[in-house]
């Protein structure tokens, strides 16, 4: 393979990845615009549609991340050892996601009575303007 052909090949892969990323982003953008009216069109409950939309966004994001890391950052063409030593530590992140999702939900339900319903939790004015505040802001 001469240098010329190699260059065209490399560029082809780049443009293909660009196209995929653009199409996925455009689709996400479209879905974000339509998500409000989807439940009416499909006749499904609001919660089901919300869950499906969120799931679609997350999956598409992972797809985009895969293309950026694999093609643009060239990791897909490196040795398997390098790929694994980069990716395997992210097991800890998966663990952290699961843990914090459970924790967030639990803590929210625990404090629901104090900070939920219509009451808006706002910090006291004098404490906000004072130098040192020991108030915890719940949000």
């Amino acid at each position: 393979m001469n240098a010329m052909a190699e260059a065209t090949n490399g560029k082809k892969a780049i443009y293909r990845t660009t196209l995929i990323l653009s199409v996925l982003t455009a689709f996400e953008f479209l879905l974000a615009g339509l998500k409000g009216s989807l439940s009416e069109w499909l006749g499904w409950s609001q919660d089901t549609v919300w869950l499906l939309v969120v799931l679609t966004f997350v999956i598409l994001t992972i797809f985009k991340a895969y293309y950026i890391v694999s093609e643009f950052m060239h990791l897909g063409h490196e040795m398997r050892r390098l790929i694994l030593s980069i990716l395997v530590p992210f097991i800890f992140i998966v663990w952290l996601i699961i843990g914090m999702v459970i924790e967030g939900d639990w803590y929210g339900r625990l404090t629901k009575d104090a900070y939920g319903s219509n009451q808006i939790e706002l910090p006291a004015l004098d404490e906000m303007q004072g130098e040192q505040s020991e108030v915890t802001y719940y949000g």
Partner: peptide, 8 residues
């Protein structure tokens, strides 16, 4: 998620 569980 915490905010959602608090109904905020």
């Amino acid at each position: 998620i915490r905010s959602g569980a608090q109904d905020v």
